[in-house]
């Protein structure tokens, strides 16, 4: 009896809701809840300017989380995000100091450095079979070491190029910040790759069972390596955008992006064990995290309280819908 009623209700819902992942729905519900709570605190929370500003801030995290999601879908993790971000930003700014050619090559060079870190991660994970958590921590430490040696331990003096600033803060389409457009483009590309290409299907396949994917004749190691290279590149691109936003790079500017990028992906319903998850969920996770951070800073919560609430909220949300199935 109750089944038919439930079926009836579900049947009347639009198709896209019936097919949606409950985790993604929960994430969107939490966004609505946060907006509601924020609007109770201050009227301006629902103004278009504020929301657009939040979307712009979210797009930096969105770009970084896109790469993280690709790696998590494989059942791996990329902990080299902090210094990939910083290396991308610092190297792009450093290239800008080398005359007109450097200015032109600044953005590609920054991304290239991130790809390089990603390739080292990929070789370690795919070919040397080192657990991704370990090798990415190690490359993170090496990247940090290189940057400390390069900068002498201070924030570098080189500033971002005009192109970087334009990408992060300009308006190519009136009313829509460029950063948001970039995130939309990267997101669209990611959705296309994940759902419409063999590479994307392979990523899900490896995440479910690499052995099976390998036995089906796929060069799984190459796919894993490419995924890590893309993740490194996107992290560095996020760093380039951030440098454009702040008009220069800074030490440890990437530290604030490791936990949020993982949390955004996982809160969006992507299984940390790999093989399951949709990009829509990641978008929801990124917006959720950004809104949470914004509300906490609007409430003038000190850093300590922000960290505590942040950790508690992530654990609480994961307990709501991110739990592993009951064993056996």
């Amino acid at each position: 009896m109750s089944e038919t009623t439930l079926g009836g209700i579900a049947g009347r819902m639009p198709k896209f809701i019936r097919r949606a992942d409950p985790a993604v729905l929960t994430a969107f519900a939490c966004i609505v809840l946060l907006l509601f709570l924020g609007s109770l605190y201050s009227r301006s929370f629902l103004s278009p300017e504020y929301l657009l500003q939040q979307l712009k801030v979210a797009s930096f995290l969105g770009v970084i989380a896109t790469g993280m999601m690709l790696v998590i879908l494989l059942g791996q993790i990329d902990l080299s995000v902090p210094w990939s971000v910083a290396a991308g930003a610092m190297m792009a700014c450093a290239a800008a100091a080398y005359g007109p050619v450097g200015v032109v090559l600044a953005i590609p060079f920054g991304i290239f450095c991130g790809v390089l870190i990603g390739v080292v991660n990929g070789i370690g994970v795919a070919y040397l079979r080192i657990p991704s958590m370990i090798i990415t921590l190690a490359t993170n430490a090496v990247a940090q070491g290189l940057m400390v040696v390069y900068t002498g331990g201070f924030s570098p003096q080189d500033s971002a190029t005009g192109a970087m600033r334009y990408l992060a803060t300009g308006f190519a389409v009136p009313g829509v910040p460029n950063a948001v457009i970039i995130w939309a483009l990267i997101g669209a590309a990611m959705v296309f790759v994940l759902t419409r290409t063999g590479f994307g299907r392979t990523v899900y396949g490896i995440g479910n069972r690499e052995r099976a994917a390998y036995l089906s004749g796929i060069d799984t190691r190459r796919v894993v390596m490419i995924a890590f290279a893309v993740s490194g590149g996107l992290s560095a691109f996020g760093g380039v955008l951030l440098a454009g936003y702040a008009s220069k790079a800074a030490q440890s500017m990437g530290d604030a992006y490791l936990l949020p990028s993982i949390a955004a992906v996982v809160l969006g319903g992507t299984s940390i064990l790999g093989g399951r998850g949709s990009y829509l969920g990641t978008v929801a996770g990124v917006i959720l995290i950004t809104l949470l951070q914004s509300i906490l800073s609007v409430m003038q919560m000190p850093e300590a309280g922000r960290q505590i609430i942040y950790g508690v909220v992530i654990v609480a949300m994961l307990l709501l819908y991110g739990r592993a199935p009951a064993s056996r």
């Binding site: 993790i77 958590m133 490791l258 936990l259 993982i262 949390a263 996982v266 940390i272 064990l273 850093e303 300590a304 309280g305 922000r306 960290q307 505590i308 609430i309 942040y310 950790g311 508690v312 992530i314 654990v315 994961l318 307990l319 991110g322 739990r323 592993a324 199935p325 009951a326 064993s327």
Partner: peptide
């Protein structure tokens, strides 16, 4: 709670750091 140790301990680490601060 059946959460993955990596994510769970990163999050609790943030809480512990916050309390320390």
């Amino acid at each position: 709670g059946r959460l993955q140790p990596i994510v769970a301990t990163i999050a609790t680490g943030a809480v512990f750091y916050g309390i320390g601060l």
